[in-house]
Design a protein around this nucleic acid. Structure first.
Lengths: 221, 221, 221, 221
DNA sequence: CATGAATGAGAATTCATTCAT
DNA sequence: GATGAATGAATTCTCATTCAT
């Protein structure tokens, strides 16, 4: 009889399989983010990996599915980060300000993710649609916003009757644009939206705007 | 002002050349916007034109230059539209609100332009850099904003010490995001940011936010 | 007669081996018949089996040998059926007619076998040549024909001086063609040679033809 | 001005195009006939041609369409040959005998065509179905048979009430089988159905059989 | 100015087979 | 006996670009 008592831990080969898969995803993320879906080369991805092109097909099935897997993992990372948001102990105004700052920082720290999302939009979000993992996953950030808004509205601090998803869109817009469109914006206006010495400026500006909006005096309906 | 009038009576061949060039640009705009730079096919562009593929090379030199020409024309159209902005007869608050509305409408009406800009950003704005026409062209909209801000600040209506380019970025962010990222946003949050029956909602929301920001009560520095 | 009985009580493993082997052959038969030798996929065969691809190599050695094994078993089935032919108690004319009918029926009932034979002919019968089991095995049907012809010629019923192998070829031709070429024939002539409601027609037609040939009045040489 | 008086004849390049196309078809016919659809290699076909693999895709679109074009031409050749059948000046019996002989000869002379038809049947005649040229084209041979049968039946020489398409199937069966299945038949029965010194034997045999069938004494219905 | 034919270089994908356990 | 992971070598197909006229 062969040894049946295999350790519960995966053996070396399986462990390698997991690592190889992750390595392919790492490289593919960079390559897709760098060149777009059609611009990325499976050959190039393979070359920058310790495995062969053949393994990409073995693990993922094809370029399309590889891109989907890249997206899935990228969104997963974002979700994890959002789950780590810890702002609800602050008062509503401070919480929103902190949230906008963290959102801006986070976008700045993940330019590849931003690019992947731009690319996926060029392709009509078809990979998200094809993914089982990525159907309406919502976002922890929206949940956080929803709770802060409820708290702020209850206390009368927030006068705006704004929806959490819409506010999330509003906040994300600037954070996303700042990174995604920095090349054309820089080229056309000569201003680098992601210059480190202007980061604080934009963090403040975005926070000011959102807070101003939420707390503005409003005529009684 | 540059001469907008075409020279009187170009002969038939020149006229055809102009028309052919325009036709190629029309089709190429759609095709690049649809599929991205690498996803677009020169064959496909040619096939949807009354001329042949050879003409694309004759007129533009290659795919790269064709894309640059597409970008140049697209930005030109935007600039022309911005030059038509007529809001300075309004009081600063109304002017800003009107400007945000027009900006939002304009983005919605030009999804292909939005896509081209996303695509150009994926490619690091290298075509803008290579273009002679598109160096730091700025934008008439920024000039308009600059003048409104000056007026509003002078009159004390605007308390914020905001820069015109930054405010332009802020306004554009939401308008751009709403169109560019509508696919992923819709897929992930189940909300169509460009649904016609929500357009008014977003116009108001964006205007409210910008106005709130500009007019917020501020502690004296 | 060869021993048909399996050895008493093979142990479980052997039994499994026998069953696994048979299962692979079943699936491989379908797959080769469906797609041809080169069109068949070892992966596909394995996937439709309860075992793995590795087992195919373990049991058969490779795709080539698997196909040979499929052929060997298919010819074996045919031979067994032919051995069951029981027409010699009939008078020669009735016996030939019955034989043609059974042959026609049998071909119709084994379209996969027909396809395998077509495929093997495309490959110049190289697998038969490579097989130890399939060297000039002849066919029980030919033996039956030989005996009927001898009887018919002896009694003067059959006037034709025909060879058993040739007559077998003649009978098989139509039965084979009717199944093997039904797709092209149907597509080109709009007639389905294997339509159930025409089966009786073709059985009669073939029998008539063979009988007419064997019993035709002939000038004395 | 450039010379407008181009000769009505196609110029050198076009002429080459026609020749190149024909050359590709020649080689592809051999290669597909030799190895089957899946066994054939586009690379191999290209290598045996004066052009490159790229041209095969330029001219035909792909392997599938190339095979279809090969089939179309092969069937075209057959039809042309059948249109040259000149047997109707003979009396019905002689005409049928001559027709069977010519059919047998023709199959023997076109083994590649036979193989292509076998291959197409393995693939369910899908390429014929996809071809615009090859939909129910029927066959001139059937028309000839139809007229001979009518004449023979009218004169009372032919007693059989046989349909022309069925008789064509019957005659073709043997001619086809003799070539298509010669490898397996030879391997299993040790008889070469296409041995030159047996050709006359089979021509006679087939003619005898068909004539016997058509002229057999029949009980009055 | 205009055009159909041509193409080199490369791209994604597949397949039978083997290895480590 | 049995198995999932791995893979080298091919295979089909594509694409931007240029040539001859």
């Amino acid at each position: 009889m062969t040894s049946v008592e295999e350790p519960a831990r995966p053996n070396g080969r399986i462990r390698d399989a997991v690592r190889t898969r992750a390595e392919i995803l790492d490289v593919a993320t960079q390559e897709f983010a760098r060149a777009g879906y059609d611009g990325a080369r499976v050959d190039e991805i393979a070359a920058r990996t310790r495995t062969t092109k053949r393994m990409i097909y073995y693990y993922f099935g094809g370029k399309e599915q590889l891109f989907t897997a890249v997206l899935e993992r990228a969104y997963g990372v974002i979700r994890e980060a959002e789950q780590g948001l810890d702002v609800e102990h602050l008062d509503p105004v401070a919480a929103i300000r902190r949230l906008t700052e963290l959102t801006l920082d986070h976008h700045e720290q993940h330019p590849d993710f931003i690019r992947l999302v731009s690319i996926e939009n060029i392709h009509g979000a078809e990979h998200i649609a094809a993914s089982e993992k990525l159907g309406k996953i919502g976002s922890p950030a929206v949940d956080v916003i929803r709770r802060i808004l409820a708290s702020g509205q209850e206390s009368g601090l927030f006068t705006a009757d704004v929806d959490a998803v819409d506010l999330h869109a509003m906040i994300s817009s600037f954070c996303f644009f700042r990174v995604a469109n920095r090349h054309t914006f820089g080229a056309l206006f000569g201003r680098d939206l992601t210059a480190p010495d202007r980061r604080e400026h934009y963090r403040t500006m975005l926070g000011d705007m959102v807070i101003a909006y939420l707390t503005a005096e409003r005529a009684t309906d």
